[in-house]
């Protein structure tokens, strides 16, 4: 464990806390894409299959349980909670995310470390996580103004993978046989997708203005 990875995991956890705070405090999920939340739940379920078979560390197990539980709780909240589900922007959240699931699964069948179910699902979860934010970014562009908590949620979600890139560079330099190409390339693509959001987020922070994404 190195400081970059710890910072990445904490930033990831922070993004989930900010999202839960927004939904709980405002009893509203306006501006949040249910499709992105469903994709994240799928990412964690596909990636943490080894939760009960391989024990890495207490930290690792606790974080996996927290990520799976929180992502399922958010999907449940947005689909079934009587008060929250009313504020879901159903007509704006129209990204065809099934194409993302299909495309990344086919890619995982072709590009994986080993042609075993667990490895294919792991690669699938890595590719899917890279594109999972797209429905959310499209929804933000459509809904025009972005409320602070939602903006912070997306920002922390992008920042966590940027920390992971520093972690992979650090591990590549310090550990003789460390190669994690699938996660590395996918993580760079994932962080790249946030680039334009980061740019507008920085501009809005500098001008102390409301975050607005161009349509």
């Amino acid at each position: 464990m190195n400081i970059f990875r710890l910072a990445g995991d904490m930033t990831h956890l922070l993004s989930i806390i900010v999202l839960l705070l927004k939904i709980y405090a405002t009893k509203s999920c306006s501006g949040i894409s249910l499709k992105t939340q469903e994709l994240y739940a799928l990412v964690f379920l596909a990636r943490y299959l080894d939760l009960f078979t391989d024990f890495i560390s207490v930290y690792n197990t606790i974080m996996k349980v927290v990520f799976i539980a929180s992502s399922l709780a958010i999907v449940w909240c947005m689909r079934l909670h009587p008060l929250v589900k009313r504020s879901y922007d159903k007509e704006l959240d129209t990204f065809r995310h099934y194409f993302l699931i299909g495309g990344t699964f086919v890619l995982a069948l072709v590009l994986n470390e080993k042609f075993t179910l667990q490895e294919i699902l792991w690669a699938f979860s890595i590719y899917l996580e890279a594109v999972a934010i797209l429905p959310q970014l499209v929804l933000l562009q459509r809904s025009g103004n972005v409320d602070n908590l939602t903006g912070q949620y997306v920002f922390f979600l992008g920042a966590y993978r940027a920390f992971y890139i520093l972690n992979w560079i650090y591990r590549y330099l310090t550990e003789p046989r460390f190669t994690r190409w699938i996660a590395c390339v996918s993580g760079i693509v994932q962080t790249g997708i946030y680039a334009d959001f980061f740019y507008y987020y920085f501009i809005s922070w500098k001008n102390n203005s409301k975050l607005k994404l161009p349509a």
Partner: peptide, 10 residues
């Protein structure tokens, strides 16, 4: 046996 790269990252 090539030791499996343990997926220790989240």
């Amino acid at each position: 046996v090539q030791n499996e790269v343990v997926k220790d990252e989240l």
